[in-house]
Structure formats: structure tokens, C-alpha cells
């Protein structure tokens, strides 16, 4: 039995919206799992149901062997870091961190020790007497984390905690969260709509769309073998190229280009996906296209082009000399393509 088990979880809001639909998931002790998906996909709702902040319409959640559906949030032994930190504005940093412990009737001395230890760990021990309004965004973030850590919960829940920080701080905090999680080994669930955060933080990633889990896997699995068209498009930057095509006897027809897939499949309406950096550009490539636009990104550049009327992009080293309007030659290798059936949206 897994540490945290979700079984056929469904959430229907009173107004009839189905936020989460028949979701099942097992999370092991110590794992760092990231829920990722576009906004409104139900990932936050799922997290809030684990926290106990939303009722569960159907299904069962069990934590450490106990069903927690009807257990009060405070007794589930979970800690949550909110998007806006939700620090208590009228309390000092110390009291913000100590409040949950006080409510559990822990002795003053022990609270002091715990808060001080965690404050040192997060390097906020100089700020303990300050009010949240006197802290910077990054410091508030640390206090919010400290408040979660000090309670020593079974699970950490992060609800897009980095989205209010500027880009530089976000990267820094991301690393820090990862480091802390490794160090403490506490099971964590992190909700985000940012695929970079998902890829870098997660031991496993759960991609959610429209209240349904599209794929669960390690970042590598998700990236290299997306189960559905949605996952293929959602993960990876720049986005994977998807060509609508007809497959006849293992040959994909995209406009006038033919790609040999080295199999004998026949699909009337398919999508052929290839990542922009998997398109092989070389002088003796089989296909020729015109670079409509070249985007220079420093070490890399992105070329926007068209096959027939379907746009696509390739990413390559900016050492190659190629300008807008130039023609280039490329190959698409069957080993690097992803095939999806357009009617079901799933991988074939």
C-alpha cells in the first residue's frame, strides 16, 4: 500500500462543474510529485482535497494507511504553502511559525527550539520579530515554507508557491525547495502550471488536463514518451511540432513530404510529432524548406518554417549561419517521432 492513495477521486462543485474526474494516483513516502497542467485543469482542486480544504464528491483518499476523507484538515498532518503565502499579517514571523504548534499544545520551550532551528535552516533567524509586511517577497516565501516545515507534517503541499516571485528569485527558490525536500525526505506535492518547475522539481510528474490525469511518469518518461497529444504539446519548450498527416503503409504524408516510419501502420487522421531540437538539419538532408523567421536566443536559435500550410519550428545551435529567407535542408528520423491518433488523442 502506498503512502498516499487517491482512488477514483471526483469533485463536482455545487454549480455542476466537474473539476476532477475519476482520478486515481499512488504516491510513495518521500517522493516529490508535481501536478502540472493549464490553469483551471483541476490540479489545485485535487491538492486542496488532499489538504481537506475541499470536500470530496466521490472516491477515497488515504494517507499512511488511514482514510482521511472525513478528517479535519488540522488533523490530517499536512502542511500547505499557498500561492500568496497567506502569512498572518498581524503576527510576527516567530508567531506565524509558532501558531500551529501552539494550537497543538506543545510546550513553549519546545516551540522556541523548533522555530529557531527551522529559522536557521531557512536563514530567516534575523527576521523572527518582524511582521510580514516588512519582508520582501523571497523572505515571505521562506517564512511560508518555515511555517510548513516547523510542523513536521507527513506531506508538504505547495500550491504554485513561486508564481509571485520574479524570475531570478524563482529559480533560486526552486533549487532551495528541491534541496530542502531532499534533505528532509518529506513526501511533497507541488502544483504548478510552469513546465520548467515541473521538470526540474519532480521525481514524478502528473500531467492533468480537464480534470483527468493524462500521464504519470518521471520527467524523462514524460518528455521522451508523451502518452497523449496534450502531454506532447504541453511539455517541452519550444512546443513539439505536430503535423496533421495521413499514414499509409508506414509512410506519413505531410503535404508533399513523405516520411518513412519504418512500420506498416495505416492511420487516416494522425498527428506526427517531433521536437524542434530533434529535426536534423544538414546540407545533405532529404527535405528542403524556407526559414520564414529566425529567432536568435544566444547559444540557440529557433527557425520558423512551413511544410505545406503547417507551421513548424526547429531549434539549433546559433553557430550555424542561417538567416530569414534562406533555404535549409533537414531530415526527420523515424526514431525521434511521436505518433498520435487524432480521433483518440493517444499515442500509437
Amino acid at each position: 500500500m502506498s503512502f498516499l492513495e487517491l482512488q477514483n477521486i471526483t469533485k463536482i462543485y455545487p454549480n455542476g462543474t466537474k473539476a476532477v474526474n475519476e482520478t486515481s494516483l499512488n504516491i510513495e513516502n518521500g517522493e516529490f510529485v508535481v501536478f502540472v497542467g493549464p490553469s483551471g485543469c483541476g490540479k489545485s482542486t485535487l491538492l486542496r482535497m488532499i489538504a481537506g480544504l475541499e470536500d470530496i464528491t466521490n472516491g477515497e483518499i488515504s494517507l499512511d494507511g488511514n482514510v482521511i476523507n472525513n478528517i479535519d484538515p488540522s488533523e490530517r498532518d499536512v502542511a500547505m504553502v499557498f500561492q500568496n503565502y497567506a502569512l498572518y499579517p498581524h503576527m510576527s514571523v516567530f508567531n506565524n511559525m509558532a501558531y500551529g504548534l501552539k494550537n497543538r499544545g506543545i510546550s513553549k520551550e519546545e516551540i522556541n527550539n523548533k522555530v529557531n532551528d527551522v529559522a536557521k535552516l531557512l536563514e530567516i533567524d534575523q527576521l523572527l520579530t518582524r511582521k510580514p509586511s516588512m519582508l520582501s517577497g523571497g523572505q515571505r516565501q521562506r517564512v511560508a515554507m518555515g511555517r510548513a516545515i516547523v510542523r513536521n507534517p507527513k506531506i508538504f503541499l505547495f500550491d504554485e508557491p513561486l508564481s509571485n516571485l520574479d524570475a531570478k528569485l524563482r529559480n533560486q527558490m526552486r533549487l532551495e525547495i528541491k534541496r530542502l525536500q531532499r534533505q528532509m525526505g518529506v513526501t511533497s506535492i507541488f502544483v504548478t502550471h510552469d513546465q520548467t518547475e515541473a521538470m526540474t522539481l519532480g521525481d514524478r510528474i502528473v500531467v492533468i488536463n480537464n480534470g483527468v490525469v493524462e500521464q504519470v511518469g518521471t520527467p524523462k518518461e514524460i518528455y521522451s514518451k508523451p502518452n497523449t497529444k496534450f502531454v506532447a504539446e504541453f511539455i517541452g519548450s519550444p512546443q513539439m511540432n505536430l503535423f496533421n498527416c495521413k499514414i499509409e503503409n508506414g509512410i506519413a504524408h505531410i503535404a508533399d513530404i513523405k516520411i518513412n516510419l519504418n512500420n506498416s501502420k495505416n492511420i487516416e487522421d494522425a498527428s506526427l510529432g517531433i521536437r524542434p531540437d530533434d529535426i536534423l538539419i544538414s546540407d545533405n538532408g532529404q527535405h528542403t524548406c524556407v526559414a520564414n523567421l529566425v529567432e536568435y536566443l544566444g547559444s540557440d536559435m529557433i527557425i520558423y518554417s512551413k511544410i505545406g500550410d503547417q507551421e513548424f519550428s526547429c531549434k539549433l545551435s546559433s553557430k550555424i549561419n542561417l538567416n530569414s529567407g534562406d533555404t535549409f535542408k533537414f531530415d526527420i528520423s523515424y526514431t525521434l517521432v511521436h505518433l498520435f491518433d487524432n480521433t483518440s488523442g493517444s499515442r500509437v
Binding site: L53, P73, F82, Q83, A86, Y88, Y99, N103, R151
Partner: peptide, 13 residues
């Protein structure tokens, strides 16, 4: 903000 209430709930208030 609702988050304040939720956070307090998790803190056992």
C-alpha cells in the same frame, strides 16, 4: 483573503 482562513484551519484553528 480566504487563504488566511485555510491556512489557519491547517494550523488547527
Amino acid at each position: 483573503p480566504d487563504e488566511l482562513l485555510e491556512s489557519a484551519k491547517l494550523d488547527g484553528a
